[in-house]
């Protein structure tokens, strides 16, 4: 067992743990923004390290795998940004439930802007 195989195996195991935690987060998190958080961050890192592990096991694929990693790092945050923005625009606000420690600063800024626009 060479050093490359050990590194590859460790990366694949790390990636699958992160993917598992991401899917658990999608199931268990309370509202849509927390779910997007779990689904994006955990699966981006998980998929990237999983594929990189495969690249260490098969060094001839490494260039292709780097391209795939760039693609994931580029498209995954972009798509979840679009999802979260669309959900917010459709007025699915974050779960706050009258907790004084939590606040939705974006909404306050937006409502203030709207008030100013109405005044002017």
């Amino acid at each position: 067992m060479s050093i490359m195989e050990i590194i590859g195996g460790i990366l694949i195991i790390t990636g699958s743990i992160f993917l598992f935690l991401g899917s658990l987060g999608i199931l268990r998190m309370p509202d849509i923004y927390n779910r997007i958080q779990a689904g994006t961050k955990a699966t981006t890192l998980g998929a990237m390290s999983l594929i990189l592990g495969v690249g260490f096991l098969e060094p001839s694929w490494l260039l292709k795998i780097l391209i795939i990693i760039i693609f994931i790092a580029y498209s995954n945050p972009l798509s979840s940004h679009a999802l979260a923005r669309a959900m917010y625009k459709r007025k699915w606000y974050p779960l706050i439930k009258g907790d004084p420690e939590k606040m939705d600063a974006y909404r306050e800024v937006n409502t203030n802007k709207e008030k100013e626009e109405v005044k002017s």
Partner: peptide
């Protein structure tokens, strides 16, 4: 309903050729 954000616009411009 609302225009897409500038992130999505420039991002999809880069993704389209790929």
């Amino acid at each position: 309903l609302f225009p897409s954000s500038s992130l999505v616009m420039s991002g999809s411009k880069l993704l389209f050729p790929a």
